[in-house]
Write a protein that binds this DNA or RNA. Structure first.
Lengths: 207, 207
DNA sequence: GTCTATAACTAGATAGAC
DNA sequence: GTCTATCTAGTTATAGAC
């Protein structure tokens, strides 16, 4: 995705919303082009196919989130000096940008958490490749930071801790608005973020 | 699902496998009936529709897992006496049956972890209702046990801890065979199970 | 670049014979 | 209960006019 014209970003916005609400298979390119007010042929013209459109939606959100994660980690490292940032700061650099993307929403993004969850369980090889490309270098970078903060842990331990943390984060994003009894909504997103960070930090330390 | 005849369970087995590998939308009822060696009309005859088939697959796995969870919790409570089981035992009762279903596999079940992940991110109302029905009473039961083991925590805290734990468990099951560099495969399922239990226990205690 | 029209196809579902 | 044949509706994708 280079620069997007108006038609392209309108398609992406509408498709993200509809896919999030109803799933990939229940939404046709007709649904998307109709709601976006563009021509039926526009998706194939601009993106190639429905699957390529899904990949484009995914990439549009994930790339900036992962850039923000790396930037947050870098600035935490700059602030902490030679001995490296502490565990909570590293986890926060990982967790907060994703939450900000999915919840903070100045313009959309809420829908994306469901869509991301679906991409994780989607066996489409193109999505799989995209995930690999976007997350492998990121994970390497965070693993390295964590090894410094938790020198008593092995690489394997750190790997699994990150997997568990990632899972907790994304399941929360995925089900934030579902399976939550009303009496438990009495807690802000920020408080939930803090809870997740301390949950993950304690879990990592226990390994 | 009452009792299943041979055709019905053959359909369920094949459908579970194919849906797990390729997703709901890429697999047609033709694919399933062909591979199962049954007639094209059999799915509609026995299950009603493709969506009902998905629900039946889901139910066939989830019901026994959740029964096993309740049984494990009950026996942990019986063993622990009046003061109730400790945190790790409760979490183990929750975690181990799911892992056993998805990994232990005497006859299938491996495929199910991907399928379950997809059901969680699937916005189909029938699946949503099924999840609600299967998990709401289960969660109530585990919440009660956890409140006894962690009396300093509020109901809200316990709720979020369980959400994080659930997420870590299911993300692990979902990506167990993906995004794992070969050098990190040097750890048994049992060891990973233990790691997850201690990760979650430490996280809960930190809340 | 954008649209209309349609090609080429596949899907889930079912009626009715066996 | 099981099968064949077929219906209807929906899909993605594209050729060609504007």
């Amino acid at each position: 995705m280079k620069s997007l014209n108006d038609t392209q970003s309108r398609i992406l916005d509408v498709a993200e919303e509809l896919f999030s609400e109803q799933g990939f298979d229940r939404i046709s390119i007709r649904d998307i082009t109709t709601k976006a007010g563009v021509n039926l042929a526009a998706i194939n013209y601009h993106f190639g196919s429905k699957e390529d459109l899904i990949a484009a939606i995914f990439e549009r959100r994930v790339v900036p989130v992962n850039e923000a994660r790396l930037a947050a980690l870098a600035s935490a490292e700059a602030a902490a000096g030679k001995k490296g940032p502490k565990l909570e700061a590293i986890l926060e650099a990982f967790i907060r940008p994703a939450i900000h993307c999915c919840v903070g929403k100045p313009e959309g993004g809420t829908a994306f958490s469901k869509l991301f969850g679906r991409c994780l369980s989607e066996p489409d090889p193109a999505i799989e490749a995209l995930l690999q490309k976007q997350f492998e270098p990121l994970m390497k970078r965070f693993d390295a930071a964590l090894m410094k903060a938790l020198p008593h842990l092995s690489r394997t331990d750190i790997f699994w801790c990150m997997k568990f943390t990632f899972g907790a984060l994304h399941h929360w994003l995925l089900t934030r608005d579902r399976f939550v009894p009303s009496w438990r909504k009495d807690i802000t997103v920020e408080a939930q973020t803090q809870k997740l960070i301390s949950f993950a930090a304690a879990g990592c330390r226990a390994a």
